[in-house]
């Protein structure tokens, strides 16, 4: 009887530990600046200096494109929107021309 209990006990703890293997500390620091939503208006090309990418696989929660404007501000944009994709293409072409 006791043998049975102890064997079950060890089995149960092993199972628990196995499940535990999947766990880990994931929580991100909360003191970094992140985009929380997207701009509703289109940003004109002439105002844009460059961009950086915010990835949901990193410290922030949503995917976003951050456009840097010529007057030193940042604007969050939805990477799925057509105008954003066009702007990115235009910026990368500009960059290629500069490097030639």
């Amino acid at each position: 009887m006791t043998n049975f209990i102890s064997r079950n006990l060890i089995f149960a703890s092993l199972m628990g530990l196995l499940l535990l293997c999947l766990s880990g500390i994931s929580e991100a620091q909360n003191n970094h600046d992140c985009c929380l939503s997207y701009s509703t208006v289109r940003l004109p090309r002439w105002a844009i200096n460059g961009y950086t990418e915010q990835l949901s696989t990193e410290v922030c929660d949503i995917d976003a494109i951050i456009f840097h404007t010529k007057n030193g501000r940042s604007a969050c944009a939805n990477p799925e929107e057509r105008w954003v994709k066009k702007h990115l293409l235009w910026l990368s072409q500009k960059l290629r021309k500069m490097s030639l």
């Binding site: 999947l22 766990s23 880990g24 500390i25 994931s26 929580e27 991100a28 620091q29 970094h32 990835l55 949901s56 696989t57 990193e58 410290v59 929660d61 949503i62 995917d63």
Partner: peptide
């Protein structure tokens, strides 16, 4: 910064949520 980062192929929010849930 020293932080969570997974490869671009993974679904970022789902993985984070899974890890947070496990914790």
């Amino acid at each position: 910064i020293c932080e969570h980062r997974s490869s671009k192929e993974t679904k970022g929010t789902t993985l984070k949520l899974l890890l947070l849930g496990m914790q």
